[in-house]
Amino acid sequence: MISCEEAAEICDKAQYDEVSKWRYLKLRIHLLFCKTCAQHSKKNTQLSHLCQKAELHSLTESEKEEMKTELEKKTLVGKS
């Protein structure tokens, strides 16, 4: 039987399809016996669905850095 910590770790990785079938099976068995983990796991999966449904977009870190630089330039101009 795996620990709850391990179950949580497998559950997180499963959200990104980065877990082996064997470890996933161990998680499923743990969830049969552990209500707390089962609930957490259900919510975690729901979160993945929500993120997918929302079709999220984000800027890359370099795009953000660029924005910051541009904004700083304007701030300096405004102050001088």
Binding site: L56, H57, L59, K64, M67, L71, E72, T75
Partner: peptide, 24 residues
Amino acid sequence: EPNKWVDRYSDYLFNYAVSRISDT
């Protein structure tokens, strides 16, 4: 706090903008 705007709000605003204008 304009120096924190990009970190705090750029993705939030970007998401809104993309939902209205599909051109990223």
